[in-house]
């Protein structure tokens, strides 16, 4: 079996590539075990943590998990529920009982129509991947202003940074409210210059966040923004 390319820090693996013997190690996400050998199932970077081997994928689809905070679009409206586009393989379902308003049967459209954007939380995901959303909770609401930017799902943690440090830096520099959904959608609200800068910064973080020059580029962007202000 072919061996993965070894980089300076991480090893890039492709589907079907043998990682090594499975003895004494656990297979995490992106890894399967066949005949005592660990095999990568996704294109990505091999990681070992707490004796568990996993692949950090280069591209991945959003897989909803209970408790995720997401930015969702209304895709369909029924008498008593909304189908939400959650940027994943499956639509989410928001029943009127989990909406933040008292909704009469048949009046769902009066509260939210197709195209509206909401901040919601994943209430439940069953084994058939039926996703139930809720808007009951602190801060969960319909987003009536601002802009929504999409970032690759695998870069959500990168945009947040250690303990939300990078996200806070972007908020301060752009002077905007920024909410990062687990589903790779980012809501930005502020003045138009701030939103434009934040969108540019998000794109840069997703593209260059892993490189050594990232810090210098971000500092330069922050200086430019301050100069403009």
């Amino acid at each position: 079996m072919s061996k993965g390319q070894t980089g300076a820090e991480q090893r890039l693996v492709t589907p079907g590539m043998a990682i090594g013997p499975s003895a004494g190690k656990r297979a995490g996400s992106g890894i399967i075990t066949e005949q005592d050998t660990m095999i990568a199932t996704q294109l990505g970077w091999l990681q070992e943590k707490n004796n568990t081997m996993s692949v950090h994928p280069i591209h991945s689809a959003y897989m909803p998990r209970s408790g995720d905070l997401i930015v969702a679009n209304v895709a369909e409206v029924r008498n008593n529920l909304w189908f939400m586009d959650i940027n994943g393989a499956f639509q989410g379902l928001l029943p009127m009982s989990l909406a933040p308003w008292k909704v009469e049967f048949g009046a769902a459209r009066q509260h939210m129509d197709v195209g509206n954007v909401v901040l919601a939380r994943v209430q439940e995901v069953d084994e058939c991947h039926n996703v139930v959303l809720t808007m009951k909770g602190v801060g969960l609401r319909r987003l009536n202003q601002g802009a929504v930017e999409s970032i690759p799902v695998q870069h959500v943690d990168r945009v947040r940074g250690e303990g939300n440090s990078l996200l806070q830096r972007l908020r301060d520099a752009s002077d905007c409210r920024i909410m990062v959904g687990e589903n790779g959608r980012v809501w930005i609200d502020g003045d138009s210059n701030g939103i434009t800068w934040a969108r540019k910064a998000l794109k840069m973080v997703a593209e260059k966040g892993h490189t050594t020059e990232f810090e210098a580029i971000l500092a330069e962007m922050e200086q430019e923004k301050k100069g403009d202000a």
Partner: peptide, 11 residues
């Protein structure tokens, strides 16, 4: 498919 991040047993 690999480029799209779809999990596969092999290429």
């Amino acid at each position: 498919l690999a480029d799209a991040g779809i999990p596969m047993r092999d290429l």
